[in-house]
Each structure stands twice: as structure tokens, then as C-alpha cells.
Nucleic acid binder design. Structure first.
Lengths: 361, 361
DNA sequence: TTGAAAGCGCTACCAT
DNA sequence: ATGGTAGCGCTTTCAA
């Protein structure tokens, strides 16, 4: 154990250690390991033997610096704990692995400062792409902020991918992978309306969240299409969490407002709403119908199983990675093309949480 | 846009670009940016100005190679979609961010090949530590495999951390962060027994999974303590998923086996069991009581809310990171000490899914 | 087919 | 307080 450098070095073995021990040049070792160059069987054998003995692995940083290196995607997510985005991450991860790419996951905790810090951190890492997940808050600053990210990343040879958010305006170097958010809400609301529901409590989410806005718009359009007046008083905004679903229903009930169905912004909100209804002695779906959005596993695990909108999260992740990989291999010119905005379909999954209203109003 | 090298280089700006443009030396720029060295206000101003203009960020790979670099933890997880491990990951992430560390998440999909590939990949990345999450399959090979990982990582100046798994035997350079798995099961089963339940359907998980083994052992010990004979026929093994919970209960019911309570290996399994009971016309907890394990958010979102064992997943993540960070800063000698095996407590969270059995047998 | 050597972008040491 | 410069470990010409 003294073939390391004079100092009591505890660091990893280097390519030089391997070369010396195998009695060959550093270049040869590199060639054997990269495998992208013809080498004699004898050389390969000797090198691999030493690599095994020393349990050597190449230093990814050095390799990166010198030009080689594994392409890496960074996934930036608000909260790793959210089921929907975990599925997108899974999709990205899976597709990345398939191509031998590496993937990084960073969490922003909904903090713009941290988001910026992470984007820069990823830029430092020289990642091939940064994937930003989830609905965005539609503040004025948002477009500018994202455009800034897109340009910074682009200038560094990287690329910004927005998943589950509306595309950026203008000629910004970014790719968007979206789903038919509004269409899903339209279909979901229509399902409720065609079952005969007229008074429905709508819990679209935070009013500034782009996904919530789209879901609300979809619902409104459905009401219009059915010629049913849409009552803004039946809309309650709030975060996409269980507590909000619970409290919104609880409060609405307390106020004596009448409704026969709940159109929740997400499955988790629906779960909270369901619980509150039950706590108030109401049965689902006999007394009140409920529908969700997302179709995460929870939806089919609730009792009754939740009718909801299926969003192809995992596929979005796969598509997102494919988009950046293609652009990379295609030697993109940097010019935008139609592939820069992909939108995937959504559809209603009918389960057991909807029934025609018991009474008409 | 021609201050780049002669070639039509599209790459990122380098420290040299900044130095030239600011009319200072490369060393000075490095000092300003690292901030760990005294520099004149004038210098700092000029450098930062150019950094802003060029939107420059340091190349993390180069920095790493040269000795600096952000410490990175790698989190290896079977399935990013599992709620429990997502919480551990969150804990690690949070603690890492707090210290300015970076974290990587890789998924193995339960595939040993992929696990090995990822460990090596992380070794290449020169990560400060590799955190392996979740119960392990107790095959003979397992101890050897992990010991191998531990030594490889250690030789590379990295470190292996096992979270939620039993510690490695012998003098292996690894840290284990565990929770009182068996104790939690003991307490949970005792809760059921003291409520009067005697015929309990036990769904501990896969028989080779270490966590399942511990949970089963805990339950058995509780039965012994209560002087109640433990019927092995009431144990059904299977994966930690909703479907298994559903099918196990469905089958048991079909076989006409009598039971007044279900001791599920995880909350998700409990959710499946609950659904199956309900599908069979049985009420929870009036007819059958159910308890889970993990205390993920789902537990309190079920109806009735699930009595379960709380496992401090997020804290385990934090503790795991703290352990490696301390060892790093403490300039550990490499010798094992008591801090190499940390075990956190668990406790029963009483909700509404347990009631004394309606009838005795 | 193999070896020698010039960098990749940065940090840290040694001068000044 | 600032500048010059020798590597960090690897890939990749260019020669042999």
C-alpha cells in the first residue's frame, strides 16, 4: 500500500497509477477505458487487470474538463414530496439513464432566491439541460426571470426546459413540455355537468398559479358550453394541499352554501374535500360528487375511488429528456422550431366518485 | 461578441475572459469569487462588474479538479415515487443545502446491476458520500456487496451511508442511520392486543426484506408478551404496495379465515387492506381495525384516519447528512466510533382506525 | 497500435 | 494586495 505518491495520500487512484502499474502510457489507458479507439487485445487485458486490482474509476470532473464527460440533466422541483412531480422526475430519470445520462435533482422550496441559486449552480456544473417542473406563479417578473434563465443557460451551452408551465413569450431559447391543462378541466367539468350537477364548488388552486388559472378557465368554458351560469362565488382559491380541500369544504358548508359536487384542483385537494364532507355527515358520491385532477396513485386508493383527469406526468418527463437529447445530437442551430413547444393530451378517468345529484336546484 | 477565442466558440466565458476584460490577473478574479482572501474594494468592484456583464459562473468541474469544489451527496433510492423515501431525500437535501452542499438523486429501480453502476458513477463524480435508502433484501450476497461498496467509496475518499437498513457486520467503513423498526412494530401490535384483538391478519411485507423481518419480529414479541399464541397462518407476505394489501385481505376473506384486525407493514398496504374490507361490506373500524406503519401523509388522509407507527424519515435524512458532514469536517481518522450507527425512535400515532373487537373468539 | 505532450478552467502557492 | 504559474486528472491531437 505504498504505490501512492510520497505523501500519505488517501485519495483515489489516478489514470497515471494505472498506467505505471500496467507499464503502458496514460494515453493507452484512456483509450482502453473510453473504448472509442482501437487497442490491442493484449493492452486491454493488462489495463483492465490493473483497473480491477486498483478498483479504479475515472475522475468525472477531469474527464468533463478535458472534453469527455457524461451529459447531465438537472431537475428543479419545488418539493420532492409531491407525487405528481415525482412522476415527472421519474420519467426524466428513466429516459436519462437509458441514454447513459446522469440526472440531478434540486429542490427550490418555492423560493425564487433558491431557484436562481440552483440554476446558477447547475450552470456551473455544466449540465446539458435544466428542467423546471410545475406550475409557475404568473407575476410580471416571471417571464423576464425565465427568459433570463433561458439566455444564461443557452449562452453556457445548456438549455432550459419548462415542464407543466406555459411557454415563454418571444424568441427565447427554451423548450416547453406542457399538457392540455385547460382541456382536461373542460372535460372534467363537462362530466359533472352532464351528470346533472349545477351547483359545483370549484377549488382550482392559488389564483396566481398558471395551472390553477387554466383549470378554472376550462371549467368556466364548460359551464358556458352547457349554458349554465358560472357563479364566481362558488370558487375558492388556495394551495394544492389536503388542508385547503378540507377547510374550503368545511367553510362552505358552515356558510350554508348549497352544492352537489366539488371540482377539486388536484387529487390531494379532493382527498381533503372528501374527508370534510364525511366529517359533516355527507356521503360521497350519494350526497355530493367529487372529482380531482392529476390522477396520482392516491386517486384510485381513496374510497370511493376518485374520478379525475389523467395527466401523463411520467411521459412528460420522458418527452422532456428526449427533446433535449435530440436537440443536442441534432446539433441544433439554436433556432427555434415547432419542437420547442410540445403539448400532451389529458383525459378523464371515470371511477366512483360521481353520481347524478340527488335533488335539483 | 468577438472577445472569445478565434474559433467561433459558443462555450461559456472563462475566468481568463473575465481577467482580461477587467484588466486584472486570473488569480485576482479567483480570489474575488471565492471570497476567502482579502481583496481591495476597487478590485472587487471591477471584477464583479465584468462578471455581471459576461454573466460568468465558475466551471464547477475545473474548480473541483483544482481542489475547490462543492461537496456533493448522492442519494440512491429504489423508486423516487415512494413517499417515505421522498421524505428522507427531502431531509438530506435540506440539510445539504443548509451547508452549501449539492445533492444528487439516483434511482435504482430495485436492480442490483443499476445500483452498482450508480455507486461507481458517484465514485467518479467524487461525491463526499453515497446515501443508500430503504430496506434491503437479506440475501447472503448483501453484506459482501455493501462491504465492497463501503471500501471502494472509502478508498476514494468518499463514504457510504445506509439509511433505514441494518448496519454492516465487521469492521466496514460505513455509517448507518436506522430507526427502531422492531420496537415500533412491537408497540403497534401491543396497541392492537391491548384493545382486545386476538385474531390479527399480519402483512409484514416481503419475507426477505429486512424491514419486513423486523416488523414481523416486533409483532411476534408483542404477542408473546401478551401471552397470546402467534398463528403463523395469519401472516401473509408480499410487496409494500396497495395491491398487495387489497389482495391479501380479499383472499383471506375468501378463505373464510376469521380476523378482527389487520397489522399492515406500511400505510400504503393498510390503504389497500381498508379498501378490500370495504369492498366486502366490512366497516373500519367497527367490524375490523387496521393499523399501518410509516406515518406518511396518506395515513391521516384516509377515512378513517389511520393509526400507525411514526417513522422520522425526514429527520433520518438530516441526521445522515450531518453524520457525513461532521466526519468530513472533524477530519475523521477513518476509525469507526459509536457515531457509526445511529438509531432514531419511533412511536405509535393513535388515530381512528382501531376499536375493540366486536366479538371475542 | 502506442506514446508524448498540450491543454481543459480553476485554485493555491510563491513571489513581488 | 496582487500577479505569475504549477499542477489537478483526463482526452486528444500529433508523431513515431
Amino acid at each position: 500500500m505504498s504505490q501512492r505518491k510520497a505523501s500519505g495520500d488517501v485519495g483515489r487512484a489516478t489514470i497515471r497509477d494505472v498506467a505505471e502499474r500496467a507499464g503502458v502510457s496514460v494515453a493507452s489507458v484512456s483509450r482502453v477505458l473510453s473504448g472509442n479507439y482501437p487497442v490491442s487485445e493484449e493492452l486491454r487485458r493488462r489495463v483492465m487487470k490493473v483497473v480491477g486490482d486498483l478498483d479504479y474509476v475515472t475522475n468525472a470532473h477531469a474527464r468533463s474538463l478535458a472534453g469527455g464527460g457524461t451529459p447531465t440533466v438537472a431537475i428543479l422541483i419545488n418539493n420532492i414530496t409531491g407525487a405528481a412531480f415525482a412522476h415527472v422526475a421519474k420519467g426524466v430519470e428513466g429516459a436519462a439513464t437509458l441514454r447513459g445520462w446522469l440526472s440531478l435533482v434540486g429542490t427550490t422550496g418555492d423560493d425564487p432566491e433558491r431557484e436562481l441559486a440552483l440554476v446558477n449552480l447547475m450552470r456551473q456544473q455544466g449540465v446539458a439541460a435544466v428542467v423546471l417542473l410545475g406550475g409557475a406563479y404568473d407575476f410580471d417578473e416571471y417571464q423576464l426571470r425565465m427568459a433570463g434563465f433561458a439566455r444564461s443557460l443557452d449562452a453556457a451551452g445548456s438549455h432550459l426546459v419548462l415542464v407543466g408551465r406555459p411557454p415563454l413569450e418571444g424568441d427565447v431559447p427554451a423548450t416547453t413540455v406542457d399538457y392540455d391543462n385547460e382541456g382536461g378541466a373542460y372535460a372534467m367539468a363537462s362530466h359533472l355537468l352532464s351528470a346533472g350537477h349545477r351547483r359545483v364548488l370549484v377549488l382550482p388552486g392559488h389564483s396566481e398559479l398558471t395551472t390553477a388559472q387554466g383549470r378554472l378557465r376550462g371549467a368556466q368554458r364548460a359551464f358556458e358550453a352547457y349554458g349554465v351560469p358560472f357563479d364566481p362565488g362558488m370558487v375558492r382559491h388556495g394551495p394544492y394541499d389536503y388542508e385547503h380541500g378540507y377547510e374550503a369544504v368545511e367553510d362552505t358548508l358552515k356558510e350554508g352554501v348549497d352544492f352537489t359536487a366539488v371540482l377539486a384542483g388536484t387529487d390531494v385537494v379532493a382527498a381533503g374535500a372528501m374527508q370534510a364532507l364525511r366529517a359533516a355527515g355527507l356521503r360521497v358520491p350519494e350526497d355530493v360528487s367529487i372529482v380531482g385532477y392529476d390522477d396520482i396513485p392516491l386517486a384510485s386508493q381513496l374510497t370511493p375511488q376518485l374520478t379525475t383527469v389523467h395527466v401523463p406526468y411520467e411521459e412528460m418527463g420522458r418527452v422532456a429528456l428526449r427533446a433535449v437529447a435530440d436537440r443536442r445530437e441534432g446539433g441544433g442551430t439554436g433556432r427555434r422550431n415547432d419542437g420547442d413547444h410540445l403539448v400532451l393530451g389529458t383525459h378523464v378517468v371515470v371511477r366512483n366518485s360521481v353520481r347524478p345529484p340527488a335533488r335539483r336546484d
